[in-house]
Amino acid sequence: MTKKTLDCSDLDQHMGKAIAPAKMKEPLHNNDIRRWVQAMHYPNLLHYDHDFAAEGRYGKLVAPQSFAVACDDGHGAGPACVGCIPDSHLIFGGDEWWFYGPKIFGGDEITNEKIPYDYSVKETSFAGPTCFQRGDNNYYNQHGDFVARQRSTAIRYSREAAVEMGAMEPSEDPVWSDAELKELEDRKYEYIKMMHDLGHGKRYWEDVQVGDELPVRVIGPHSIASFTTEWRAYLFTIWGGTHRPGMDMEAMGFTKEFAGHENDPVMERDNPEWTDGAYFGPSRGHLFPEWAHRIGMSRAYGYGASMGAWILDYLGGWAGEWGSVVHSKANYRGPAFTGDITIMTAKVVDKIVDEDNGHLIQVECKMVTQANAVMATATAEVALPTKG
């Protein structure tokens, strides 16, 4: 096998330089929030049920903290994918989030300021020389309030090398019996019932102890249908909904068969189907197994930004409406493949009193498949109310 190289020399000129900000063309709607939690498999009444939300802390529907990424024009990847790496492809490597207090509601207008941060090149068993590139997404509302910062990591690699090295050979979806599927639905409901039981109540900092384990959260089995539902919940995938930045995918190094016209404002007015990443362009490997194989993936696979959302929702649902995630750092080890399930667990590892963020619970979170293959790990700090 020929030793592969990865030319990242063009990236230096882009670091630290802001790129076109992202903004939806119209204010957010409650149904945008409802669509999001439905797609993320997060049935928290606070985010979709009008009557329940009206009785709660905010008096109306409020978006989950994970929803900020839905207000971007590329699920946070934009500032982590600048500059040309010839003949490359991209998958998500992780997200670090900081939240500053303001919540997102229907009627808000969110703008994302995007700034490339840094990159490094490491040798991997997946594709040989691999670029780990990071970029910041700074989300503000219409009042100028700083809602959140998302520091995304993109993994950029030689598509040819990934296919040649064969770290992920094509494979078939696992088969689940009716009894197994019924058991999975029961396991899913255990987490949902935990949210129902907490309701509008408070989970107090004093009542949580180091060593406590959070209720298990199960998602799946994943399918092309579920991944498509996720994709459609990202608002930038809707025709005409976003001020498009006009990204040139070929100029960034994507091979011609994958480059397409995703996020192309000119083509969107001429033939919008060509601008839709679900069918053409670099994102179609998610929904079409043939194209997944062409970038070194074993089957159709899910979105890294969705995995980050699952983690934030998992912790947010446990914290309840009086708690909130203040920081989360997640590393993605492997995608959600069709046929697999995702099992999420977390353990309390510390209790902190912080001058800026109050009383915090630190947790370590893990996301695995039914075969115990690690999909992601995360460390997060969650603010909870106190009895004092």
Score class of each variant (00 low, 15 high):
residue 120 S to D: 06
residue 369 T to A: 06
residue 132 F to V: 05
residue 367 M to T: 12
residue 276 D to W: 01
residue 310 W to C: 12
residue 152 S to C: 07
residue 373 A to C: 01
residue 360 L to E: 10
residue 323 G to A: 11
residue 160 E to Y: 04
residue 129 P to M: 03
residue 164 E to D: 15
residue 201 G to F: 07
residue 370 Q to E: 15
residue 252 M to C: 02
residue 257 E to A: 10
residue 178 D to C: 09
residue 189 Y to H: 11
residue 40 M to T: 15
residue 210 V to D: 04
residue 312 L to S: 09
residue 205 W to T: 02
residue 147 V to W: 02
residue 237 T to I: 06
residue 363 V to K: 05
residue 154 A to I: 01
residue 363 V to E: 04
residue 22 A to C: 11
residue 115 I to W: 03
residue 124 T to N: 10
residue 203 R to P: 02
residue 120 S to W: 00
residue 13 Q to L: 05
residue 192 I to H: 14
residue 118 D to S: 13
residue 291 W to I: 02
residue 120 S to F: 03
residue 121 V to A: 03
residue 179 A to L: 13
residue 344 M to H: 00
residue 304 G to P: 05
residue 163 V to F: 05
residue 289 P to I: 04
residue 144 G to R: 00
residue 165 M to S: 10
residue 132 F to T: 05
residue 125 S to L: 14
residue 205 W to R: 00
residue 259 A to Y: 05
residue 371 A to P: 00
residue 27 P to A: 08
residue 37 V to M: 08
residue 242 T to L: 02
residue 223 S to M: 09
residue 78 G to I: 07
residue 203 R to I: 03
residue 36 W to L: 04
residue 104 I to G: 05
residue 225 A to N: 11
residue 176 W to Q: 06
residue 349 V to C: 11
residue 191 Y to T: 13
residue 93 G to N: 00
residue 88 S to T: 04
residue 143 H to W: 07
residue 59 G to T: 05
residue 132 F to R: 01
residue 52 F to A: 04
residue 280 F to A: 11
residue 99 F to Y: 15
residue 242 T to V: 06
residue 179 A to D: 15
residue 95 D to K: 04
residue 313 D to G: 13
residue 153 T to A: 01
residue 250 E to L: 11
residue 142 Q to R: 10
residue 316 G to V: 03
residue 124 T to F: 09
residue 173 D to Y: 02
residue 38 Q to I: 14
residue 283 S to E: 09
residue 378 A to R: 00
residue 378 A to I: 01
residue 98 W to T: 12
residue 352 I to R: 12
residue 87 D to Y: 10
residue 152 S to I: 01
residue 230 E to Y: 09
residue 171 S to V: 14
residue 340 D to Q: 15
residue 162 A to I: 14
residue 166 G to Q: 13
residue 160 E to G: 02
residue 171 S to G: 11
residue 245 P to F: 10
residue 126 F to H: 13
residue 372 N to A: 13
residue 13 Q to K: 14
residue 135 G to Q: 06
residue 185 E to G: 10
residue 17 K to C: 03
residue 310 W to A: 12
residue 35 R to T: 12
residue 295 I to Q: 15
residue 360 L to K: 09
residue 59 G to F: 05
residue 49 D to I: 01
residue 1 M to I: 02
residue 75 H to I: 11
residue 32 D to V: 11
residue 149 R to T: 15
residue 72 D to G: 08
residue 225 A to G: 06
residue 293 H to C: 11
residue 228 T to F: 07
residue 256 K to Q: 14
residue 346 A to D: 02
residue 351 K to W: 08
residue 249 M to I: 10
residue 151 R to F: 02
residue 118 D to I: 00
residue 331 N to V: 13
residue 274 W to V: 10
residue 348 V to Y: 11
residue 278 A to S: 04
residue 5 T to G: 07
residue 100 Y to P: 01
residue 361 I to T: 11
residue 331 N to A: 07
residue 185 E to V: 10
residue 276 D to P: 00
residue 136 D to G: 00
residue 1 M to L: 04
residue 23 K to F: 06
residue 138 N to I: 15
residue 212 D to W: 04
residue 178 D to Q: 15
residue 8 C to R: 03
residue 299 R to N: 13
residue 127 A to H: 08
residue 105 F to Q: 04
residue 53 A to G: 10
residue 107 G to H: 09
residue 127 A to N: 07
residue 280 F to T: 14
residue 286 H to R: 12
residue 130 T to G: 10
residue 63 A to R: 06
residue 212 D to I: 07
residue 300 A to S: 15
residue 174 P to S: 06
residue 180 E to N: 01
residue 355 E to W: 08
residue 20 A to Q: 13
residue 384 L to F: 07
residue 71 C to T: 15
residue 51 D to R: 14
residue 184 L to W: 01
